[in-house]
Computed example of a mutant assay.
Amino acid sequence: MEKRVPVFFFAPFVSSTMRVVPAWIDHNGHMNMAYYHVLFDRAVDEGFGLAGLGHDYVEERNASFFAAEIHTTYKRELKVRDEVRVTLQLVDFDEKRIHYYLEIRHATEGWVAATMEGLSLHMDMETRKVAPFPDDIAANLAVMKAAHARLAKPQALGRVIGIPSRIAQAEALRATGTCH
């Protein structure tokens, strides 16, 4: 079942507005880290749904995509009733994988609350194994990637987790002007 290739994608994709609900607030008075992933996941569903990888894709094609690896950074607290939007940038894809970058932004003030880099695998739901994207989905992803290729490469892309050296810490302090 071939789907028509979309004419264009927004660059970056911007999700619908979502609100932080009281049940997501932890004992620190801010949104618990798990719910940042709820917001990211909803935006991934919305954004890649435009490429044909939505909920109906699972039902109609018996295929989906699974998270294989993610890297999240938490930049600023979100509080109850904050409204946010999530941007999604398709960084790359091949016949079986998609690499993407997201930012949760405050919906009215624009500041970044968190970032996430992800790698997902296309799955055959019958065999539960990695499988190639159908041609029409690959074509849709190519159009999305072309639109998103115009965006700057996110600085946080490919970050490594670790404790920075004292030299790197001093350089970072000097760069921000907080070192005496």
Rank of each mutant, 00 (worst) to 15 (best):
E2K: 08
K3M: 07
R4F: 01
F8M: 10
F9S: 13
F9R: 13
F10H: 15
F10P: 09
F13G: 07
S15Q: 02
S16A: 09
T17Y: 07
M18S: 01
V20A: 13
V20R: 01
P22Q: 02
W24K: 05
I25T: 11
H27I: 13
N28I: 04
N32S: 08
H37P: 00
H37K: 11
V38Y: 11
D41H: 09
A43V: 06
A43F: 05
V44I: 12
D45Y: 06
E46S: 05
F48A: 07
G49E: 02
G49H: 13
G49L: 09
L50H: 09
L50D: 06
A51N: 09
G52V: 05
L53M: 15
H55D: 15
H55L: 11
H55C: 14
D56G: 11
Y57A: 12
V58F: 13
V58T: 07
A68N: 03
E69H: 08
I70Q: 10
T72D: 07
T72P: 03
T72H: 02
T73I: 09
T73R: 15
Y74G: 07
E77W: 06
K79R: 15
R81Q: 15
R81H: 15
L90E: 05
D92P: 12
D92I: 12
F93Q: 00
E95I: 05
E95R: 07
E95A: 09
E95P: 11
K96S: 04
I98C: 11
H99K: 04
Y101F: 15
L102S: 12
L102V: 11
I104E: 00
I104C: 05
R105S: 03
R105Q: 09
H106I: 02
A107I: 09
A107H: 13
A107T: 12
T108V: 04
G110R: 00
G110D: 06
W111C: 00
V112S: 03
A114M: 08
M116N: 12
M116K: 04
E117G: 00
G118Q: 08
L119G: 02
L119K: 05
S120K: 07
H122Q: 04
D124G: 10
E126K: 08
E126G: 08
T127R: 08
T127A: 08
K129D: 01
V130A: 02
V130W: 00
V130D: 02
A131I: 00
P132A: 02
F133W: 10
F133C: 03
F133P: 14
P134F: 00
D135I: 03
I137K: 15
I137S: 13
I137G: 10
I137V: 14
A138H: 02
A139G: 08
L141D: 05
L141E: 04
V143I: 07
V143C: 10
M144V: 03
M144T: 11
M144A: 09
K145I: 00
A147W: 07
H148V: 08
H148S: 06
A152G: 11
A152D: 13
P154A: 05
P154I: 04
Q155K: 15
Q155E: 15
A156S: 15
A156E: 13
A156H: 14
L157R: 06
G158M: 05
G158C: 03
R159P: 08
V160T: 14
V160I: 14
G162T: 06
S165K: 03
I167L: 12
I167P: 05
A168Q: 11
A170W: 01
E171G: 08
A172K: 07
A172F: 03
L173D: 14
L173Q: 15
T176S: 13
G177Q: 00
C179K: 12
H180P: 15
H180F: 08
